[in-house]
Write a protein that binds this DNA or RNA. Sequence first.
DNA 1: CGGTTGTTTGAGGACGTTCAAGTACTGTGG
DNA 2: CCACAGTACTTGAACGTCCTCAAACAACCG
Lengths: 228, 228
Amino acid sequence: MTHPRVPYLKKVALFADLPEPSLLRLAEVAGLQRFSAQSYLFRQGEEPDFLYSFVEGGIVLVAGSGEKEAVVEFFGPGESVLLAAALLGLPYLVNARATTDGQALLIPAAKLRKLIDEDVALAAQCARTLSRHWRVLISQIKEIKTHSALERVANFIIAQTKKTKGAVSFALPGMKKEVATRLGITPETLSRTLRSLKKYGVDAEGDTLHISAIERIASLVETPPEAT
Amino acid sequence: MTHPRVPYLKKVALFADLPEPSLLRLAEVAGLQRFSAQSYLFRQGEEPDFLYSFVEGGIVLVAGSGEKEAVVEFFGPGESVLLAAALLGLPYLVNARATTDGQALLIPAAKLRKLIDEDVALAAQCARTLSRHWRVLISQIKEIKTHSALERVANFIIAQTKKTKGAVSFALPGMKKEVATRLGITPETLSRTLRSLKKYGVDAEGDTLHISAIERIASLVETPPEAT
DNA sequence: CGGTTGTTTGAGGACGTTCAAGTACTGTGG
DNA sequence: CCACAGTACTTGAACGTCCTCAAACAACCG
């Protein structure tokens, strides 16, 4: 190991595939920061000082302040947040609140902007990562615009697991009320929807969901046999 | 001019700021293509062969096939579409349908992927453009999740013009039914909402909207004086 | 012309929200 | 150890926004 922070960088998808020299340049400017659950990493409207890459723990991106909160997306280990704001140097559009304790790599935004204009590998990797995020957001927009609350919850469950059949259990990536606004519904509606999903083998135990058969959930969202 | 297609490239935001050598490399692989209104440039699920940059005319990105159509966004001259799919080489998530006749620059996706790994200026510019798109989508998600139909229509009107006060007239970027799903509502609801906006100085004449005073529309969406 | 498609308008109903009350779990301080 | 408050979640009831269905109208085109 040429630098003590390189192994951390390798854990982050954005940097994992970069060649050694690029990693070194990043390692020199990166810092490791701990954060604790429920703390804010940054707030909407602030100027971006850092790019955040999570080594451990997770956060939630929340739009809007005060009463009207809407969760945009959850992020976990290996993911990077707000590359967009950091690259453009524009104020954050959202708040970032930690859902658990954890650690993040902080890359100073100014340094990142400088590096990206000099390092092809890094620039190309940023473009690819942003492309992936773009597709995630497009999917979410499609989802909200074309599916009902029940279908959205079903799809969310499916997206949380890699398995396509059989039983699964997993922890929700945040509080139920956060998951609810992520799906564009209220906590009450989520609660009722989960209850109505019981008959399809979904059981909630605290923040853990037990699914008896993923394929039954999947059948809820697939277009029911449609003649044409 | 060193290449006949360079002036076209300069009209596209993605390429406008690139240095001469980068432009030349792109010009060598780019092609100009005409398209006519209502034709599909590509369809959901297809492998991306090109990156589309519009020189003239516009298109609409539509998610979902058959009955359930949801417009994701409108694009016009100077904008580029589906950089994300082209860079990753993954199937399109959406359809692209022309709203008017026009012309687009086509950059072969494979060539683009190759260039981006060799050309820092291009890679950095792609990352910045994707960042901007990312922010547009985040705004849209916030909008859908936290605002009512009337507020969304009001915000849409405001976003269509640069002016912040006085009278404005502008053409809708597509058919009313497309605008409706772009806003996450049905054509019927849009029609009714526009009617209810008449008392705020909004008048629809075909696909053109006449606004007597933008500030009156803006006042609809700003949080009404709220005591705390 | 009739046929097609986009838009408007009306009536009715469903889905999800809002409001409100109640339960369960947590940590705090007596 | 037990009240107490605070928060998350659940459940119920009533309302309202928006959608669905249906019909009429307008514009366009062979």
